[in-house]
């Protein structure tokens, strides 16, 4: 006669399943929103004239109605924009055609040569949003890479992993997010 093996009490597996259910309900993130964060400038006062910026301090980035990119009136490919922007903002060899720097005393970093360069972004009214975001993304990437490099050089970690708020602030002041958006062009008409 075959001996009957004792059955395992399965009543508690339901409780285990409920535990799992509760755990996953707690930990699952409900599609958090993500994107490129920007700060809009306050509205312009018509009585105050905008400050003059010298030509060497401006990188003119234009996206036209065909989503083509022009930097300082020269057509380039989007893949080049990141390195062009990095080169412009850091100006490693103090090229007289690239932005000036001014010495600033930044707490946490000491004396630092801060670039006065400004990226001027102009699009057409009929530029597609996708092209606009790609340009914004490349500009953000250029600044993030510069910040990463500085952060690694001074503090040994990337900017994203830098936890100290004071040091983050110092890096942000040393390499400011200087993107200014110009009034859009209207070459595309009512398209």
């Amino acid at each position: 006669m075959v001996k009957k093996s004792p059955t395992i009490n399965g009543g508690s597996t339901a409780d285990l399943a409920f535990l799992c259910l509760a755990f996953f309900m707690m930990t699952s993130s409900m599609d958090t929103d993500s994107g490129i964060v920007r700060r809009l400038p306050p509205p312009l006062d018509p009585n105050i004239k905008p400050p003059e910026i010298r030509e060497r301090n401006v990188l003119q980035v234009q996206v036209n109605l065909h989503d083509q990119l022009r930097v300082n009136r020269e057509q380039i490919d989007i893949s080049e924009l990141r390195s062009v922007t990095k080169d412009f903002l850091s100006n490693p060899f103090d090229d007289p055609h690239k932005p000036e720097k001014r010495e600033m005393d930044i707490p946490g970093l000491g004396k630092f040569m801060v670039s006065r360069g400004v990226v001027s972004l102009q699009n057409d009214n009929t530029t597609s949003y996708e092209a606009y975001i790609r340009v914004q993304n490349e500009l953000a990437a250029a600044i993030n890479e510069l910040r990463d490099a500085l952060s690694r050089e001074r503090f040994g970690v990337t900017f994203a992993n830098l936890r100290n708020d004071e040091l983050r602030d110092a890096i942000q002041r040393a390499i400011p997010m200087s993107i200014s958006e110009a009034e859009p062009r209207n070459d595309g008409g009512q398209r």
Binding site: D33, S34, G35, I36, V37, R38, R39, L40, P41, P42, P43, N123, D124, N125, T126, T127, S128, Y129, E130, Y132, I133, Q136, N137, P184, G188, R191
Partner: peptide, 30 residues
């Protein structure tokens, strides 16, 4: 914003946001 949108309407919305003082914006992307 849908990626095929023309910038005209986006710029108009941004101008409104500037007027009302909502300066913190996020271009939502994946």
């Amino acid at each position: 914003v849908d990626k095929n949108t023309r910038m005209r309407i986006v710029t108009a919305v941004k101008q409104e946001l500037r007027q009302v003082g909502a300066f913190r914006i996020n271009y939502s992307t994946t």
